[in-house]
């Protein structure tokens, strides 16, 4: 891709404009939460990041299953790329959650089950990337990655439902719960728009990461070809 193509890359601009728009609306248009005040606005980054982390690791899981089933290297590339982008969003979710926690609970970190399990998720996928990076053989790297990707995803439901399984300090679900959401409709609209905008950003980053993975495979193939 040339510099000119990069500058007029429509998916990049779409994602960028969407994210900037929801950030501006989240900071200056929608009112602050009546109880939590201004700090609640960080939820427009924290919640989408957490949602995308779940989505990314699910994609890694599904692509890993497909790789083991079909031996499809494209699926392996998708699994690896999604895990890496998901790891970034998990880190963003933890950092923004920590900032919110300091303002609300008075501490940067609390050994709350959901926080702790999200941190575990971060290290599981950091391990996934580390393991993939340490294996030179292409097929072996894909197989090891697929197994860890499948087993690691088994932890994701524990993250999501831990807030229900264990009594915790963390705010209980406000949207995905029985009955009407407890959040104000305007704030809910902004939150859903943020989720959509960050999803576009995720798709763009995933696509770029996939291009890198494809290029890496081509380079490895070229090195293996007899000159």
């Amino acid at each position: 891709m040339t510099m000119r193509q990069r500058l007029i890359d429509p998916p990049a601009w779409t994602a960028l404009i969407a994210v900037v728009a929801v950030v501006v609306v989240g900071l200056f248009v929608v009112p602050a939460d009546r109880l939590q005040g201004q700090v609640q606005r960080i939820m427009y980054v924290h919640v989408p990041s957490a949602w995308i982390a779940y989505l990314a690791f699910f994609i890694t899981f599904a692509a890993s299953v497909r790789y083991l089933w079909r031996r499809d290297l494209a699926a392996d590339r998708l699994a690896a790329s999604s895990a890496e982008v998901g790891l970034v969003f998990t880190a963003v979710a933890i950092v923004t959650g920590s900032i919110w926690g300091k303002a609300t609970w008075g501490v940067w970190w609390d050994w709350d089950p959901r926080l702790t399990t999200t941190a575990l998720l971060l290290v599981i996928y950091a391990g996934y990337i580390l393991i993939r990076g340490s294996i030179v053989d292409r097929d072996r790297r894909a197989r090891a990655g697929a197994v860890i990707g499948i087993v690691g995803f088994a932890n994701v439901p524990i993250v999501h439902f831990s807030v229900t399984w264990w009594r915790s300090l963390h705010q209980p679900p406000t949207i995905v719960r029985p009955g009407d959401p407890t959040i104000d409709h305007m704030l809910l609209g902004e939150l859903l728009a943020s989720v959509l905008a960050f999803s576009l950003l995720f798709l763009y980053l995933l696509n770029r990461r996939l291009e890198l993975e494809r290029a890496r495979d081509e380079a490895e193939q070229a090195l293996l070809m007899p000159s």
């Binding site: 575990l120 998720l121 290290v123 599981i124 950091a126 391990g127 996934y128 580390l130 393991i131 340490s134 860890i148 087993v151 690691g152 932890n155 524990i158």
Partner: peptide, 13 residues
């Protein structure tokens, strides 16, 4: 290095 890195979080529950 890789075994504890991969296993400790998985075995945390």
């Amino acid at each position: 290095l890789l075994l504890p890195v991969a296993l400790l979080p998985l075995l945390a529950p």
